[in-house]
Amino acid sequence: MESLSAAILLVEEESSASQNAGVRIERRRLRDMCDPFQMNDGLFKKNFRLNKDAFKYVLDAFAEETTASTLSSLSPLNIVVSALRFFAEGSYQHGVGADHNVGMAQSTVSKWLSNFLEIMQQKLCPQWIKYEQSEIEKQEAKQNFFTKAGFPGVIMCVDGTHIKLIKPSNEPFLYYNRKGFYSINAMVVCDHKLRIRSIDARYPGCNHDAHVWGLSKLRCYMERRYREGERNTWLLGDAGYPLQPWLMTPYRSVSQGSRQSNYNIKHSKTRNIIERTIGVLKNRFRCLLGARELHYSPQKASQIINVVCALHNICIFYKVEDLNTIEFDNESRQEEEEEEQTNDPEFTSTANRIRDNILSSL
């Protein structure tokens, strides 16, 4: 009887091994057959969010940093396809791996997504996300923002957005935000062309927008430029940010119809481009949508946010149209105004004077 049971178990194990081998063979066959460039342009963009020229650029950039010895049975194309499918849909890794364009096991998707993120964060982010602007770029931005609402001197706009996470294993209380979920509070800065000029996704969701701004490299850069004599250039931020000579915020507690109210209207109209930028980013790369939430550690989630911001700018460079907001969910940017703020005593009076001067010019 024992020998019969052992024989049955052996047959079952052999059958399972045979099935697993068959699955691996089928997955490899699917990968070998897959040629995403055979898709028409519309379907290609829907699947990968990049057009073919942008995809080839990313593929070449990734391939330059990989070698045949590190890829085993996977090509750079396989890895880029799987990563972009995940960014585009925000599906679980198992679902991405089962996609007929991917053909990978969940563990394989996880391994190579990590590899892709490491390489692309080092290679793409420094090249495609830069807050430094030439004088020509600044003048172009100022002219564009002024034409929009008559608000002078603006080169960029800033806002924070919460990227939802599963509950982190370490110090989860830091990531639990005032809205009642776990997140990273990512600071996004854009210019007049919806390009992301700065992204800071290092801080847990409990942190206030003003705190993230206060620790950012961009704030230090703007202060340094101010001390060096730049006096007519600033960012726009909402009421949650501190008023500074290089960061203009709205007046608080204004009367309807007052000059301060008019200032706030023009300020809001000029600044809403950052809300649109965040909306386009999340619509394009749905892994960032709150309905999906990132099932990764905060460190890896930060890498994902950084890389998709670089991809967003690549899409703009290669003229990839915005996604159809009817077809794709449009996550609302109706964030509650932050009430906390920390003004810098050294610059408060100067910043107030600058804002009052702008008010007088409107």
Rank of each mutant, 00 (worst) to 15 (best):
R225D: 04
Y226P: 00
G229S: 11
E230Y: 15
R231W: 15
N232Q: 13
T233A: 10
W234V: 00
L235N: 08
L235F: 06
D238C: 10
A239V: 12
Y241W: 01
Q244M: 12
Q244K: 14
P245C: 12
P245N: 11
W246E: 08
L247Y: 07
T249M: 06
T249H: 07
R252Q: 08
V254G: 01
V254I: 00
V254W: 05
G257E: 11
G257D: 11
S258F: 14
S261P: 07
S261V: 01
N262P: 00
N264L: 09
K266R: 15
H267G: 12
S268P: 02
S268K: 08
K269R: 11
R271Y: 15
N272E: 01
N272I: 06
N272A: 01
I273C: 10
I274H: 04
I274V: 12
I274G: 02
G279K: 00
V280S: 04
L281I: 01
L281E: 04
R284T: 15
R284A: 09
R284F: 15
R286A: 05
R286E: 12
C287A: 11
G290T: 02
R292D: 04
E293C: 07
H295S: 08
Y296G: 00
S297C: 08
S297F: 13
P298W: 14
P298H: 12
P298G: 12
